[in-house]
Design a protein around this nucleic acid. Sequence first.
RNA 1: GGGUAGAUGGCAGAGUGGUCAAUUGCACCAGACUGUAAAUCUGGCCUCUUCGGAGUUCGGGGGUUCGAAUCCCUCUCUACCCA
Length: 370
Amino acid sequence: MSITFHLEATDHAARAGRIVTPHGTIDTPVFMPVGTQGTVKGLTPEMVRAAGAQIILGNTYHLALRPGDELVRDLGGLHTFMNWSGPILTDSGGFQVFSLATQVKITDHGAKFKSHIDGSPLELTPERAVEIQENLGSDIAMVLDECPSLKETTREKVRAAVQRTVRWAERCQRHHTRASQAQFAIVQGGLDFELRAECAKDLVAMDFPGYALGGFSVGEAPEAMHAALPACAALLPEAKPRYLMGVGRPEDLLVGVAAGIDMFDCVMPTRNGRNALAFTADGPIRLRNAKHRRDPAPVESDCDCYCCANYSRAYLHHLFAAEEMLGPTLLSLHNLAFYLRLMREARQAIRDERFAAFQATCLARWKAAS
RNA sequence: GGGUAGAUGGCAGAGUGGUCAAUUGCACCAGACUGUAAAUCUGGCCUCUUCGGAGUUCGGGGGUUCGAAUCCCUCUCUACCCA
C-alpha cells in the first residue's frame, strides 16, 4: 500500500490520526494549501513549510496544459520540479469541469476542454487523468469525477453525475499502475443523501485507500453543506482518510472536523491573502481598509508567523495600497499559518476530547468580532 | 503694451444649445472571494432621500433662449508667442 492511515483518537465523530506517505507523515485533521500550477502562489516552499504545511495540492488539468506532465516527469517529477519534498496530492481536473464549464464538453468518454490559455483542445478521460498524475508523481491522486454545480440543478443531473463519477472511478482504478501513489475516490451527489449513499456504496465496494466528498461549496448555502456533512462523512469507511474537497472558510473546517473529516483544501487563505483579507481568531480583517493606515499592531497579536512577528497592519495597508507584491506574499503566509494553527489546535482538542468546546470557543470569538 | 489658447466634479481629461449630475482613467471609500481562467472582480464616490426622486453644479458677474457646461458681453486668473 502506497499510504497508510492510522486513526489515533476520536472525540464523538471527530477524528485525529496520521497518514504515512512516501514523502512523509501527515497529522490529521489536516489543511492542505493549494498549489495549482506547481506553486502555492506567492510563497516559496520554505515559507509554506514554515507556515506549518505538511502536504500541498497540485492540479492535473493546469499542469498538463502547462508545462506538460511529460516535461514534469522528465525533470524528475513534481516534487523535484517545484522543490517541495513533502507529500503532494493532485486533483484530477474534475473541479475544472465545474469551474471552466463554459470551456468543457462532457461525455461518458471524458471531458473535452478547450484550453483557457489558447483554446487548444485537451481531452481529460479517466485514463488520461491517471496518466497525468502518475507522470506528476504525486503521493495521492484523485479519480476524475464530474462535479455539477448545485445552483439551479436538478436531481436527475446530479444523479447522472453520480453515475458517471462511479463509472469513471472504475476506469481510473483499472488504469492505475504506480505503486507508490494512492488513488482516492470521490463521492458526488450534491445535497441529496440518497444519491450520496448510492455513490458511496459503489465506491466503497471498490476499496480505494481513501475517500473524498466532492461537490460541496459549489453554489449551495454553507448551512446546507453543514447540515449534510455528518451523514455524508459517515458513509465513508472509518479506517480510511476522508477528504472534503475545496472547503473552506475556517468555520466550515471546524464543522467538517466535527463531522469526521480528516483532510481539507481550499484556495481561500492564499487567494484572500492576495486580496488583502487576513484571517484572525477575531474574524477577518481587510488590510486595504483606511482604518489600518496608522495601526502599529500586527495582523494578529497571538500569531507567531513571520508576517505577524515583523510587520504592522499599517505596513501591510501601505503594501496593498502601493500594490507591492510583498503584501500578497505576507498575507498568504499569515493566512496559511492561521489555517494550519487552527487545525493543529483542532487535533489537540480531539486528543483531549474537548473538540466541541474548542469549536464553540472559536465560533464565539469570530462572531463577537463581526 | 499687443496677440493667441484656455479655465469642467480630489487630480487628469471628454463634452461645445436640450437625450448632462456631466464619458473615461487615476485617486479615494466599501464589499466579494470555498478541489485557483483570480496579485482578481463588484459597487460607491456634489448634497438630501420614504431610493421613486428632489435640490444645487462646469472660474466670477450679467445677458440671449422655452431651454446654456455649451452662444454673447464683461471681469478675474493661467499658459504660450510678439514687443
